[in-house]
């Protein structure tokens, strides 16, 4: 189990690195799907099968499909790869990497400095999640629905006037 976790974690990190470094949009997307699937497996290992399923269905399934549609609409062909290469000079990586490294260092310090716990992970069944969702978190569900509605309207509005806005 532990070994599986580390292998999956390695896959997730490597594929994510490829996501942010790849020059071709569709390839980057496919790497992101791999990363998401690895993450789903980690969820499963951590005892959250329901979350794992949702990660695959909604993230890897629905959201990524949206991205692919947009990439198709924008027609990001070989020309853009060249453009991306020009944009990605080695010097560009320095600052952000430093920032992220510092942040990582800080948080890892916090995690490690806290009492290390050895309790084994426990599986949490979807039933518990559902009970909790519609019990104490009911207001959160309402808020989420209020967030989704503007998302729907916003997406509709943004996509609607494309042809008219064309210069």
């Amino acid at each position: 189990m532990e070994l599986l976790f580390y292998i999956t974690a390695g896959v997730a990190v490597l594929s994510t690195v490829r996501v942010i470094t790849h020059l071709h949009a569709v390839h980057a997307l496919l790497y992101l799907v791999v990363s998401l699937m690895a993450l789903a497996l980690i969820f499963y290992i951590l005892g959250a099968p329901f979350a794992a399923a949702l990660e695959i269905i909604i993230y890897a399934g629905a959201i990524m499909v949206l991205f692919i549609f947009v990439v198709m609409l924008l027609n990001q062909g070989p020309l853009t790869v060249e453009q991306e290469r020009r944009w990605l000079t080695p010097r560009m990586w320095l600052g952000p990497s430093l920032l992220a490294l510092l942040l990582l260092g800080e948080v890892v310090f916090i995690i490690v400095a806290a009492d290390t716990f050895t309790v084994e992970t426990v599986g949490i069944q979807p039933k518990q999640v559902g009970l909790s969702l519609y019990g104490p978190y009911l207001i959160g569900v309402e808020l989420a629905s209020m967030l989704l509605l503007p998302g729907l309207i916003g997406a509709y509005h943004m996509g609607r006037r494309l042809s008219k806005e064309e210069p």
Binding site: G95, P96, L99, A100, L102, L103, E106, V107, F109, I110, A113
Partner: peptide, 16 residues
Amino acid sequence: AATVGLGALVLVGFFA
């Protein structure tokens, strides 16, 4: 985005 990241760095550092 970078300033947001810097802000996070400072805040987390403050707690750490």
